[in-house]
């Protein structure tokens, strides 16, 4: 194997890892936002599935990928509104209601698919969008700047969300009500309105993650996400609720997946051990967290409904 081929393979592997990380990143960012405001949502995977189906169906009908993304986000926002109502107004237990949302999304997306589509039909996915100049750079160009637009959106959201969380009043409010809603309330921050917005936006991102997945793959089928939403929840804990941390977690998971795939392709990992190798992303994510061993603390008010004067 000569050097240029080796470099090419490494570049392809990293690009692959970035693509694999994208849906995790979008969904984790959304979940992190909700959790920062003090609300746990275990239904991410269900929201992703509905977003994926909605986007897929829209593209099938209109052939417009951007409409697809919008439908995915829109469905996420609607479910977010519903989830906010039941967890904030009705104070439903967040762990269980999230599982309910997951089951609903899992079944409903499949049911709608069977009723309105039936046999899987492909849609044309986003073509890679080469960033001018940068995409022409050697090595880095192919690795980072020849992806579909969704990948850029996802990674661009990381600094945006960091900025919103740490540099704006809105972000400060979110963090405050996630830690101490009573204190925030007494300072005149509307706990309800802030949590509502965080949950709705967070679910919108989950819907976008699903839409991105379906459009990137150009297909929908039953349980398309394959429990990605649960991994996204796990990665929020990996990233300690910070957008940058969540991004690192998604990249670790995606890159290890890509490296394992490439090693299998070249026979570095024998076929008899292919299942053992498939454990690697999960194990390395845990180990990475053990090694880093950050002393972080979760939002103090996470999963606790807020009752004024209660």
């Amino acid at each position: 194997m000569n050097d240029s081929f080796a470099v090419m393979i490494i570049v392809a592997t990293i690009a692959s890892g970035i693509r694999l990380a994208t849906p995790f990143l979008l969904a984790s960012l959304g979940e992190a936002l909700g959790q920062r405001s003090g609300v746990l949502n275990l239904g991410v995977d269900g929201v992703m599935l509905l977003g994926a189906f909605g986007a897929y169906y829209m593209v099938l009908q209109t052939n417009n990928l951007y409409y697809g993304l919008l439908v995915g986000i829109g469905l996420g926002l609607i479910i977010g509104l519903f989830y906010a109502f039941i967890t904030l107004n009705l104070r439903a237990e967040q762990g269980v209601s999230g599982i309910g949302i997951y089951l609903f999304g899992l079944g409903m997306s499949d049911l709608l698919f069977q009723k309105f589509v039936g046999t899987p039909r492909p849609i044309l996915p986003f073509m890679p969008l080469d960033i001018p100049v940068l995409s022409g750079l050697p090595i880095v160009g192919e690795m980072l700047f020849q992806h579909s637009i969704i990948v850029y959106i996802a990674f661009a959201l990381v600094p945006v969300m960091s900025f919103v969380l740490h540099r704006t009043t809105y972000g400060l409010n979110i963090r405050a009500i996630g830690e101490n809603p009573e204190a925030a309330d007494s300072l005149g921050v509307s706990v309800m309105a802030t949590r509502y917005s965080a949950i709705i936006i967070g679910n919108g991102l989950a819907g976008l993650a699903g839409a991105a997945l379906a459009i990137e793959l150009g297909i929908f089928q039953q349980n398309l996400t394959n429990a990605m939403g649960f991994i996204a929840i796990a990665l929020v804990y990996f990233g300690a609720w910070s957008p940058k941390g969540v991004m690192i977690g998604s990249l670790v998971f995606g890159l290890v997946q890509a490296i394992v795939l490439q090693c299998k392709t070249f026979g570095v990992i024998p076929r008899s051990a292919s299942d053992l190798a498939a454990m690697a992303p999960a194990i390395i994510t845990i180990l990475a967290l053990v090694v880093v061993a950050k002393r972080f603390k979760q939002p103090a008010a996470l999963t606790k409904p807020y009752v004024r004067g209660g």
Binding site: I9, S16, L20, P23, L217, Q221, K264
Partner: peptide, 14 residues
Amino acid sequence: VALAAEAARAHMAA
């Protein structure tokens, strides 16, 4: 499905 897509890309790269 996503992993299968990347496996195909890995083959093509190789």
